[in-house]
Amino acid sequence: MRTAAIDLGTNTFHLIIAEKENDEVKIIYKTNAPVRLGEGRLNDNLIIDAAFKRGVDQLKAYSETLKEYGVTKFKTTGTSAIRSASNGKDFVDAVKSETGIDIEIISGDEEAGLIYQGVKLSGAIEDLSLIMDIGGGSVEFILCDSNTLIWKKSYDIGAARLMQQFFKSDPISDEDRNSILVHIQNQLEDLFEVCEKYQPKFLIGSAGAFETFAELIIKKNNQHTDIKAAKTYKFDFDEYIAIAIKLINATHAERAIMPGMIPLRVDMIVVSALITNYVLGRLKINNLTLSTYDLKMGVLASLMN
């Protein structure tokens, strides 16, 4: 039986199709599209007309792909951009009317739980760890080990949300940078309290921006690792810090031509690097791993079980 997960992120819509083979999840097909549902007025809690249309059109295409691959069971999850938008229900209704796809709008808490399940499948969790998933609208943190989810929370500090609110300069100015960091600090007080108690020594970055960090390092070092085929990637910490600082200090044009950069993340990667660096520094963590498995793999696992 073929099963699929459709993840409607604030920036990117993902489709992944899989089947179970000897208790292993075998991926048959996966794709994504930079729909940018949160374009323009994310902080006004509104999906603008152009983004609304792009979203519906993309789901029409995904609907055809599901038929083509003979998918019998699937789940479509809507996250930060849809759950916070005043016209989010209108989007859900339009998608149902035009494609037949039912969107389940999940809470930030549910999103964090599914991210944990996806990351767990990758094998990235080896010890007490903090998982971090940087989306466009929200960022999820999960404190866990390979057996237990200890604590989780979703925060409305996603890369697109902070970029629209604070990132007004090129390259980013000290003023804009400090505004972002003060905002992060104020939002994440309870995260730092729980981490002070448990002292995680590993940060696991869930897909998204962390895949771009990895691609930039791989291309820079002329390595042959295929991130698209890998479940995990262990960063050399010094190499990560070097690339993060380079991204933060670069102009838009300089970032755009970096080998391994994708157009969608040229600007948002700066915000992602600032958030990641702040969390690493505040928690004194110097072990960083990428899990390419994230929410959509968690959704697949829940469907298959």
Rank of each mutant, 00 (worst) to 15 (best):
148 T>E: 11
150 I>A: 09
151 W>I: 11
151 W>E: 12
152 K>Q: 05
153 K>D: 08
157 I>V: 13
158 G>F: 10
160 A>T: 15
160 A>S: 15
161 R>P: 08
161 R>F: 09
161 R>S: 15
161 R>L: 12
163 M>Y: 10
163 M>Q: 14
163 M>W: 03
166 F>A: 03
168 K>L: 12
169 S>M: 07
169 S>T: 15
171 P>G: 06
172 I>T: 13
172 I>W: 08
173 S>L: 09
174 D>C: 00
176 D>H: 07
178 N>S: 15
181 L>A: 02
181 L>W: 02
182 V>I: 15
182 V>N: 14
183 H>Y: 15
183 H>S: 15
184 I>P: 05
185 Q>Y: 09
186 N>L: 01
187 Q>W: 01
187 Q>V: 03
189 E>Q: 12
189 E>C: 03
190 D>K: 11
190 D>G: 10
191 L>P: 01
193 E>D: 14
193 E>A: 13
193 E>H: 07
195 C>P: 00
195 C>Q: 01
196 E>A: 14
198 Y>F: 14
198 Y>Q: 14
200 P>T: 13
202 F>W: 07
203 L>C: 13
203 L>I: 14
204 I>V: 10
204 I>A: 04
205 G>F: 03
206 S>V: 13
206 S>C: 09
206 S>A: 14
209 A>K: 01
210 F>Q: 04
214 A>E: 00
217 I>E: 06
218 I>E: 12
219 K>N: 02
219 K>A: 07
220 K>T: 05
222 N>Y: 02
222 N>W: 00
225 T>H: 04
226 D>L: 06
226 D>Y: 02
227 I>P: 01
228 K>Q: 04
228 K>N: 09
231 K>Q: 07
232 T>L: 01
233 Y>T: 04
234 K>G: 02
235 F>Y: 08
236 D>R: 11
237 F>L: 08
237 F>M: 12
238 D>Y: 07
241 I>N: 04
241 I>P: 00
